[in-house]
């Protein structure tokens, strides 16, 4: 591991100034992804700027409605928070389906959003990888492809985004507060995470020095029910093959509102706008849900190892929406 200097600035603005001024600096929050990458040699900073005690670590109601989640809020505290469990069951479930109890106790909200792909070739520093070392090629294209993306991939990268929480936040129209060298701004979800294109080394639209300080969530409309379902190779403690974050409002047997985001399929959490549009006003039936999901997956491109993904995604979307439509008032 390359030696690095370590700094604990007095506040968030000082942290942003320190990282912005040094191209080899990076932030440290919960460390669950970064420390592993330091050890693997994927990330080789010259300076670690520790965010400990600098950012809010709780959930509060905003004056005009909605919730504000401090970026330092650990994943486990966020999942267990009463306001999150009442208003956004899908977010609590998404968090609880990710990682393990120990990791959720350490991992932060901001860090979860910025965690990097678990593509095996990205993690193997002996293998070419355009995300880790731009221009070296993509080993996953011809390699083991079970987890590869099927939507929005490019010939430069077929990695998928690993976060469950980010899929829920993408469905819930979350807004991320970012403090950068030029001041504060708001980045919406979807919009934070990028598709790979010809710059797969860039996971998000954030620039060097940008710091996520909070996530804001609008309140759900009355009568909305939400759920998160994750399909994976073992029952717990594994990354998603396919995951679905869905929120649904039904009135008189018809879909009044729907929010749908998919995980495990793309370089970014995939907001299923096409399916949402097809479903709004449609009958709340399994047939309609299936047809909308098929339309969303129509452009999927698969290889021999991940050919199951589109059908699995369609089946999972259909099942989650059908269950939400059949359920009581939450």
């Amino acid at each position: 591991m390359r030696p690095f200097a370590y700094s604990r600035p007095r506040d968030a603005a000082a942290a942003v100034a320190e990282v912005s001024a040094d191209p080899e600096a990076c932030y440290l929050a919960g460390g669950t992804n970064l420390v592993d990458h330091l050890r693997l040699g994927i990330t080789r900073p010259g300076l670690l700027v520790d965010l400990r005690d600098l950012l809010d670590d709780g959930v509060e109601e905003m004056p005009g409605g909605g919730l504000r989640i401090g970026a330092a809020t650990p994943n486990s505290d966020l999942a267990a928070h009463p306001l999150v469990r009442r208003r956004h069951p899908m977010l609590s479930a998404a968090l609880l389906s990710g990682a393990s109890g120990q990791l959720r106790n350490a991992a932060s909200t901001g860090g979860n959003l910025l965690q990097r792909t678990r593509c095996a070739y990205f993690r193997d520093t002996a293998a070419p990888c355009n995300k880790r070392e731009p221009g070296t090629g993509c080993s996953a294209l011809e390699g083991h492809g079970r987890h590869n993306a099927v939507l929005g991939a490019s010939r430069h990268c077929v990695a998928v985004h690993p976060s469950d929480m980010a899929v829920a936040l993408t469905a819930l129209d979350a807004r991320v507060r970012v403090l950068g060298p030029g001041g504060e701004r708001v980045v919406p979800l979807p919009g934070l995470h990028r598709l790979p294109g010809d710059e797969p080394h860039r996971d998000t639209v954030l620039e060097h020095g940008d710091l996520i300080t909070a996530v804001e969530l609008p309140d759900p409309p009355r009568g909305r029910r939400s759920a998160y379902r994750k399909v994976r190779d073992r029952a717990s403690y594994a990354f998603a093959l396919v995951s679905v974050a869905a929120a649904l409002e039904v009135a008189d047997g018809r879909v009044r509102g729907v929010r749908l985001a998919l995980g495990g399929l793309a370089h970014a959490p995939w907001r299923a706008r096409r399916a949402e549009e097809a479903l709004t006003g449609a009958p709340a039936t399994a047939d309609a849900f299936r047809e909308a999901a098929r339309a969303e997956l129509a452009d999927a491109r698969t290889g021999p190892d991940n050919a199951f993904k589109p059908a699995l995604a369609v089946a999972t979307v259909t099942a989650v929406l059908r269950d939400l439509a059949a359920r009581g008032d939450r």
């Binding site: 370590y6 440290l28 460390g31 670690l48 400990r52 120990q102 990791l103 106790n105 350490a106």
Partner: peptide, 13 residues
Amino acid sequence: GRRILSCLALAVS
């Protein structure tokens, strides 16, 4: 009091 993975924690932090 919280269970964490000590391998993914930096001592200095």
